[in-house]
Design a protein around this nucleic acid. Structure first.
Lengths: 254, 254
DNA sequence: AAGGGTTTTTCGTATAGCGAAAAACGAAAA
DNA sequence: TTTTCGTTTTTCGCTATACGAAAAACCCTT
């Protein structure tokens, strides 16, 4: 395997783009140089090129750089491509009317999950933020559901890499995780009790594609410990499973 | 001004990324080669590089390429950066409860406007799609509002380039457009009667930053001709102006 | 006015990235 | 099956390109 040679300047450009995050939306050349170890001149040229296309924009005040509207535009194309978002949003909004808790839709991506949608605990609250956030699959209910239905090979691959821990409850031992995944497939849902954030619990169910039988996403409900009492859990699960089925039904209709 | 030299392979990569759209989410090497006039080998190498980072993914069935989750992830960072989205969404949702029509939030970008949010005519409908869509500023109500408050220089620049027409009603003549923009600043709102799509009308008001007094976005209400009767327009405007003010007030609080 | 921190620019060199063309692949037709 | 056509990959030299180091310009802060 020669591995087709990749374009190093494009790789640099991508590495630069990925440095920007919610926590650090603005970065200067020196910071990027330190973080990436790419020479300042290269960083500068990469930024110039990305700026010319408005993938990145420069703040004239601070001289620092941040992601621009073209990046947003491209990201939206992906979002609109992802069929399950389009189908799920109106349905989950309906569910949200009945159960005004934090409802999320997430997909699997190489050992992590990415948030596609997030409905807040109450209407009116600051809402769809954290869309696009990536979290590890082993530490969340939705992640575990998605993991449970991945191929053995993929699961093994992740086990061989190892898992990060976030709270004392995070599942990191492969043997523990594997039996948990088996149980999840058995029950059709996953529960996470403070495995990612202390004090927070979550419940998740899979969403399948009816034709291929592949898992395409997971729906999760998140909240503080007390919200998810055993009695409540049953109520939530009922709704979640129903909406999961509704989404599945609509998935291949178009 | 020598114009700092830009990285051609990065430029190629960007041009490739931008080819993907809602209408053509999947493209092959040959198609990209035809559209961009870049040699197939270069296209191939660019795609390989982007694939390695999951900016683009290859459909193993068709061998064609489409934008990937990393592109979504990056786009979301931008979205979450844009303060006005975060502030406006819950407020516009409230407005939407009172007025269940199509409500949009858009920003200006070099002669065009980009949709940040779109609330559908009714709850439950397929909703936030068309986020990220780019439309010309001269042909929509929101575009005209945003244009009205741009610098003279910018407006002149656009006039010198010229405007595209979409319907018989589209404003393309600079002198007509300029007097329209003056009227918009006078009235504090813009109206578009079938200037972009036949049968469709729209109403838009500006959203300002209270500190800088700069225009940061526009709120628009769109619908078929009959929805926007003169009497209705007054009702809509009242609400729109109120919510615009509410958004402004919250903008710099954080 | 001077200093430390930036961001830009310059410059020579090595190599990365280019295009043309050949090879491999794959689906559909014969 | 074999052939054909339209893809996508790979190969291969050459040249232009993108590289890093270091110098220059800039810009706040003191």
């Amino acid at each position: 395997m020669p591995g087709p040679e990749l374009l190093s300047s494009v790789q640099n450009a991508i590495r630069v783009m990925r440095q920007f995050s919610l926590d650090e939306p603005e970065l200067g050349i020196t910071e990027l140089n330190e973080r990436l170890g790419i020479s300042k001149s290269s960083i500068y040229r990469v930024l110039q090129t990305l700026c010319a296309e408005h993938i990145i924009q420069q703040n004239p005040e601070t001289k620092k750089y941040h992601l621009g509207l073209t990046a947003f535009e491209i990201g939206c194309v992906v979002y609109n491509d992802i069929q399950v978002c389009q189908v799920a949003l109106p349905l989950l909004q309906k569910m949200h009317l009945k159960l005004p808790v934090v409802i999320q839709l997430v997909v699997y991506d190489r050992g992590t999950v990415i948030h596609l949608l997030k409905l807040p605990e109450k209407r009116e609250t600051r809402t769809f933020n954290r869309m696009g956030k990536r979290v590890p699959a082993n530490a969340t209910a939705a992640g575990k559901v998605l993991l449970a239905y991945q191929s053995e090979k993929e699961i093994e691959r992740l086990c061989s890499i190892g898992f990060k821990s976030f709270t004392p409850n995070t599942l990191t031992k492969p043997e523990v995780l594997l039996s948990e995944l088996a149980a999840i497939k058995e029950n059709g849902y996953a529960f996470s009790k403070e495995e990612f954030k202390v004090g927070m619990c979550a419940l998740a169910v899979p969403v399948f594609d009816e034709i291929t039988n592949q898992i395409v996403a997971a729906i999760s409900v998140t909240g503080p410990k007390k919200i998810l009492s055993p009695a409540q859990i049953q109520i939530y699960l009922r709704e979640m499973k129903m909406y999961s089925r509704l989404i599945s039904e609509q998935l291949d209709l178009e």
